[in-house]
Design a binder for these strands. Structure first.
Ligand SMILES: [Mn+2]
Ligand SMILES: [Mn+2]
Ligand SMILES: [Mn+2]
Ligand SMILES: [Mn+2]
Lengths: 215, 215
DNA sequence: ATAAAAATTTAGACAAAACTAAAAATAATA
DNA sequence: TATTATTTTTAGTTTTGTCTAAATTTTTAT
């Protein structure tokens, strides 16, 4: 697989999580910052290689092959993110773009030795699960902070989108993975939350609460 | 720079060490396993980007820009090799191909953090010097084993070519970087050497002796 | 049900990096 | 020096991945 093909497969994998019955051409184009016509061309090629099943105008799904490949790319991406944060001391908002490049390094042995070196982590710095060597992903019941019961203690376990701005906002509010969090009040007008984190009370917008996973 | 451009620049850098007054088109083609006509095309492009100075039929040299870039690619290659051997436990004959890919990862910050993480190594697993953050390379007076005085103690400090077969041969003979080595006798007919390594006597062909650096 | 809007695909073009075959320049040799 | 031989460059293709513009299909709205 070329780097470009890998990028398409990974995007289709991520989009499949929300539209399992078929991923739209436009959605792929949006994620890859490319044009719909380019996507169509690539879908034909991926289909010829039996990585996706594709019928004109009907959207696309991953084949067994494509699904396996996608999980291996995600595995590499997330293991490299762990390496960058745990070993090299990068902040969690700095690692995504570098991991986008590192995920395309070919060696199987490399990634398995890296896995071992990192002590077989199950989650990446953003709380996303890391597929193991067989592609098995640890499932965790997690809720968005916006869907949580009042006055019950939860633990922060992940972020939905890991944009730099969002992650830096969490840093500023001293919210990290593992932080204990209790929703004290919910403003019915705009769903703003009054929460307690690290024994301090802060208010959190609905947009933020919709991007923070707790458990 | 694209990956392909980086590969050309690196090859020109290495060939410049032996032909400083100009590198041949054919030599580049040989190293990159490509055709001379492809090399000519690329040299024009690199010349337009002020990475090489090139005049038809006259061979090519690196510009100041090209030289700086080349050293940064070599720096990345060798730092990654150290990482693979020291941290991930690869053997010294297994790391070259993986480093060929890793050397093209773009981030400056990444390579400097990696450098720090590895404790600013001056040499890679094959004894080749690693340019520092400013491109400065530590010079070492080293001789080929074939050029050495008899009955004098030397230390093995590097290999000239790091092909897997050669490195595995050295492993088999228990010759590693740092090994003490004394040439006892030199067969005048074919320049075969009788040497002492690790208090054991072994015979070494001229071809081997021409590829092993000592100090 | 028909028309308008949106999504998707086709057709044709382009840039990067490679190739083959042929022409041109340089180097080697008789 | 004249003639080969070698090296290098040019000319013309090919493949990959992208693009724009136009055509087609599907979806939405009247
Ligand atoms: Mn990421
Ligand atoms: Mn991540
Ligand atoms: Mn190497
Ligand atoms: Mn090396």
């Amino acid at each position: 697989m070329t780097i470009s093909e890998e990028n398409y497969i990974k995007v289709i994998y991520h989009l499949s999580q929300v539209s399992p019955k078929g991923v739209n051409t436009n959605a792929i184009a949006g994620m890859l910052d490319t044009k719909a016509s380019s996507v169509t061309d690539m879908l034909k090629k991926l289909s010829d290689k039996d990585l996706v099943s594709y019928q004109k105008y009907q959207g696309v799904t991953l084949t067994e092959n494509g699904f396996r490949s996608a999980k291996m790319i995600v595995r590499k991406h997330r293991l490299w993110e762990v390496f960058l944060v745990e070993k090299l001391g990068f902040a969690w908002d700095e690692v995504h773009d570098i991991a986008e490049e590192l995920e395309h390094i070919k060696s199987e042995t490399l990634i398995n030795k890296l896995d071992e070196y990192l002590d077989f982590p199950a989650f990446d710095p953003h709380g996303d699960p890391i597929p193991d060597v067989n592609g098995v992903i640890k499932k965790v019941n997690k809720l968005l902070l916006s869907e949580v019961e009042l006055r019950k203690e939860y633990q922060c376990v992940g972020v939905k989108h890991s944009s730099s701005e969002f992650l830096q906002y969490l840093d500023k509010q001293k919210i990290a993975l593992g932080s204990k969090i209790i929703v004290k009040e919910k403003e019915s007008f705009d769903d703003t939350l009054l929460v307690e984190v690290n024994s301090k009370e802060i208010t959190i917008s609905n947009k933020i609460a919709n991007n923070l996973y707790v458990h």
